[in-house]
Amino acid sequence: MALIERFQKTTDIGYWQGQIPLNYIYTVGRAGEKFFREIINGKIFGAKCEACNITYVPAKIFCEKCFARLEDKYLDVGTKGKVYTFTQCYETYEGIRKEKPSIVTVIQIDGTQGFLVHWLGEIDFEKVSIGMPVEAVFKAKKDREGSILDIKYFKPIK
């Protein structure tokens, strides 16, 4: 096919469809180990940098501002926070329309500078507002497996 020629029919255009399976295991790391062992206990753990006066959630082993090690600075930050921002999402991660939209929120955990991204439940979307106090609702203890999904969702504090 020379440069001056052009395809006349879309069905004549050649292509090859290729896919390949790529599977991973992601280790949670030392701070993740602490965070997810404690989530099984119904607790949320952060890490505090005293020098910067910043509490990170989830826990991390270093302060990203001053680069100090925070491995012995883990602390229970409680399970309450405030809605920092929120959205009602109508699309799955595959880009397909959901049957029922979900409320996704960024929760700032009280007394910290850290956020968790999670669902908001037990409320209508129209009633959600920025600054609204919320708390984590955990799965039944026997169903927890050390995952961010051990938190079912956050719910408004009445």
């Binding site: 989830p58 921002t85 929120f86 959205t87 009602q88 999402c89 699309e91 799955t92 991660y93 880009g95 979900s102 996704v104 929120t105 960024v106 968790l116 991204v117 999670h118 669902w119 995952s147 961010i148 999904l149």
Partner: peptide
């Protein structure tokens, strides 16, 4: 921390 929720990346833009 994020992918287990299986939410659309557009949720990040919405937020």
């Amino acid at each position: 921390y994020n992918r287990p929720l299986k939410e659309s990346p557009h949720a990040v833009a919405g937020l």
